[in-house]
């Protein structure tokens, strides 16, 4: 029994380490796969693309809402060291501009309230961000615009509005 004491301790330490490692890495691993999938679906780096109306045939991310129109922009602040200018065009109904880091956290959401919303996204560690700018917790992530569009007509109207959205490296 004494001889097993060492291996048991090693087993417990390995179990705790792998348990914590899986928990820590799972969100960033899943987000990395999602970003790759979005790229394959044509979501541009530093540019918004309005997705087709959400249906069983067009969905690409888990649990999409078929009542919303989604525009997405991938960002990589390694390729935009001066930041990214992000603008959501004014929408009469519900609209939000939300930012997700590489660990899946929703670190900023700007609500439309019928008006355009704009911010400058800065790389992690940026000091003294100016008014109207936000420091991203991670270099990579995704920006999402959600707009209420429960019908095809509403989605068509959003398509016209979405041409005024901006996601561009400065």
């Amino acid at each position: 029994m004494k001889r097993l004491f060492g291996p048991i301790i090693v087993c417990v330490i390995a179990a705790i380490a792998s348990h914590l490692l899986v928990l820590q890495q799972a969100p960033s691993f899943i987000m990395d796969r999602a970003l790759t999938m979005l790229e394959k679906r044509g979501i541009p780096l530093h540019g918004f693309l309005l997705a087709e109306r959400m249906t069983p045939q067009t969905q690409s991310v888990v649990r999409p809402s078929p009542d919303l129109a989604y525009s997405a922009c991938r960002f990589d602040l390694d390729q935009a060291p001066r930041g990214i200018r992000v603008r959501m065009a004014a929408t009469p109904d519900y609209a939000s501009l939300s930012f997700f880091d590489a660990n899946t956290n929703n670190f900023l959401t700007l609500r439309g309230e019928g008006e355009a919303r704009e911010t400058i996204l800065l790389p992690p560690g940026s000091t003294e961000p100016g008014e109207g700018s936000t420091v991203s917790p991670t270099k990579r992530g995704v920006i999402l615009i959600r707009r209420l569009a429960p019908t095809q007509e509403a989605h068509d109207a959003v398509a016209a509005i979405a041409t005024g959205d901006t996601c561009e490296a400065i």
Binding site: C11, I13, A14, S18, H19, L20, V22, L23, A26
Partner: peptide, 14 residues
Amino acid sequence: SVIAGVAIGGISAM
């Protein structure tokens, strides 16, 4: 022991 620990820890986390 290490292999068993990694498996137990990983699967339990998942």
